[in-house]
Design a protein around this nucleic acid. Structure first.
Lengths: 334, 334
DNA sequence: TCTGGGTATGCAAAGGTTTGCAGACGCAAC
DNA sequence: GTTGCGTCTGCAAACCTTTGCATACCCAGA
């Protein structure tokens, strides 16, 4: 039903190669012929079949972007920035969601390969070795993870975690709980590493809780646990969990930050809307999305580039952190 | 570099057609041969090129999903439901974002055509005639809009708006402001139509403000306007705007719902997190996503099906609405 | 021994496009 | 009247698969 290059050639009385050139190398065809061809194409509603073109040129002008959970407000700004960067270079971004499932991740890379010129793997949950293996199938740029031999963009979440812990210890907190992220998360390991070191340096106790689902619910569910632990401050893997934790504590009658201080990570827009407003580590997600697209596209087919970009993070102090409570710790109501 | 069907054929000593059948019609090939071919394929890391396959079968097993703004929490549940429905039928969803720009919308349809078996057009901002025209290029299912001759899935937002207005008038509100959505939105027009009718029926006054950006910011910006108007209740185009409006009123020192009642639309998860919790019209976004995928896939190539599905909405009463204030209306602080 | 049927494989066209090469043509210079 | 060059266009191969048809073979039945 849709018109092909052959239809246009027939209608305008030229060979298909001339039609092809009219679109992809206009300077090679006589202006008169060109306008005739264009008129016929217009009239027939012809559009080059991008799949067929890609088959021969090897370029699809598409980029795949795989994220762990599109419902997590952390991702949309990154996605939008990537889309904007791609659009400027005449590329399109196809976003897919893995539901935090490593198996789906792998399958999506396979599905995208050959339909895109490269894949941005955002917060992958699968193993490094699998990622390396997949990178032989399609060019990969990894975001929120470092994989040796592969180009990557990470935010310096270790530094952020350190700043957060220092902020809390400076407020007098001696026992901090860390709400870990999901299994397989590089970021979660980094946070843990840095937070542990920072706590030790300040001679404070740090207890790791997890792994947890990186959602509001994952935070809510740990509220009781945090209280039982007797921690007076919590660093959460992300803002969503921090917000969930605030909710959970609230419904247990515990006030934030008077009784428990909470720090999130990401600085999603939502963190400015909650009460109290969330103290959090700001991640430059937009810059990360742009950088990833740049890295993928910059070096054409030259896959040897394995630059690793690290973006700075920043502690944003709002209302969910305060001085450690004096007196004895709260108790869980039975 | 990546292995093709030819490499596998050479390695296993059979014709390429046998390799092809090993993957797409295994029962047609001798078990012995099959396992030999599979071993070679495995060893070479061969994966069928989906683009090439699509070229000949005409099926890509991909579905495009175009949304107006991926950062709007309204969409992710819909996206996830669509993905899940698609996955069950061995399809993949490619999501793209238009930044609320009709021109980008059109371009994306063109880009997706031939790379997908159909496109789910979600909350389109372009004209009906353009949509019809594009539907000749690739099968389309429209969500959140009715276009004659095209399959569509809409939520009965008119009913929702009516319920909301009735709720407000029952609370004694005589002057309601309606925060309209973006230009080109079918939903916005429906809401306006239904709200106007419902207000007239209750003998209340309804003032339409807009068009507005369907974001938090779009709501914040209208706070002063609403006050100046003297309206005691507001129905917003979506929850994001409602939340923005609450913020805006809050910073003007106006209390919700004591002085102004606010109703949103969508019931995004965020609406349960704000203070006060938002009264809103719940949209069955998940069901809409699933229904759209079903409609697209159900009828194979039979494009004549133009079923129009309407899903029910529901008013969820929370804490942002209350009795109309007695006494004189508030005044804008200068 | 011949026929018939079933199974496994090969052959080649097809799908829509790009692109290196070669041919056609016109024109200027010698 | 050649030669040579430049511009435009056609030819056909190539990209990687799938699939209808033909072929080859084996085995059973008569």
């Amino acid at each position: 039903m849709p018109a092909t290059i052959r239809d246009v050639a027939r209608a305008s009385g030229v060979h298909i190669s001339t039609v092809s050139r009219t679109f992809s190398a206009p300077h090679l065809v006589n202006p008169e012929t060109r306008s005739r061809v264009l008129a016929c194409a217009e009239h027939l509603g012809y559009r080059p079949n991008r799949a067929a073109r890609a088959l021969i040129t090897g370029r699809t002008h598409n980029i795949g972007l795989i994220v762990a959970d599109i419902a997590n407000p952390f991702f949309p700004p990154l996605i939008k920035a990537a889309e904007s960067a791609a659009r400027h270079r005449d590329y399109h971004i196809f976003v897919t969601d893995t539901n935090e499932d490593p198996a789906v991740e792998e399958e999506l890379v396979h599905a995208l390969a050959k339909q895109v010129d490269g894949v941005l793997l955002c917060s992958p949950r699968m193993s490094n070795s699998l990622i390396e293996q997949l990178s032989r199938e399609v060019p990969l740029v990894v975001i929120n993870r470092q994989v040796t031999g592969l180009p990557s963009v990470v935010m310096d979440v270790g530094q952020g975690a350190r700043l957060a812990v220092e902020h809390l210890t400076a407020l007098g907190h001696r026992h901090i709980a860390l709400l870990g992220g999901p299994r397989g998360s590089w970021t979660s390991r980094e946070i843990r590493r840095a937070a542990t070191a920072a706590a030790r340096a300040a001679d404070a106790e740090l207890t790791v809780l997890g792994p947890n689902q990186p959602t509001e619910h994952g935070g809510t569910g740990q509220a009781e646990h945090v209280l039982r632990l007797g921690a007076t401050a919590v660093l959460a893997y992300n803002d969503l969990m921090a917000i969930g934790l605030i909710e959970g504590l609230d419904s247990l009658g515990v006030r934030v930050p008077e009784e428990v201080s909470i720090v999130g990570i990401d600085d999603i827009s939502l963190s400015r809307l909650t009460r109290p407003k969330l103290t959090t580590v700001a991640n430059p997600t937009g810059a990360a999305g742009r950088a990833a697209v740049d890295m993928l596209l910059q070096h054409g087919d030259d896959r040897r580039t394995t630059a690793q970009v690290t973006l700075q993070t920043e502690l944003v102090i709002r209302d969910s952190t305060g001085p450690a409570p004096t007196g004895k710790p709260h108790t869980v109501k039975e």
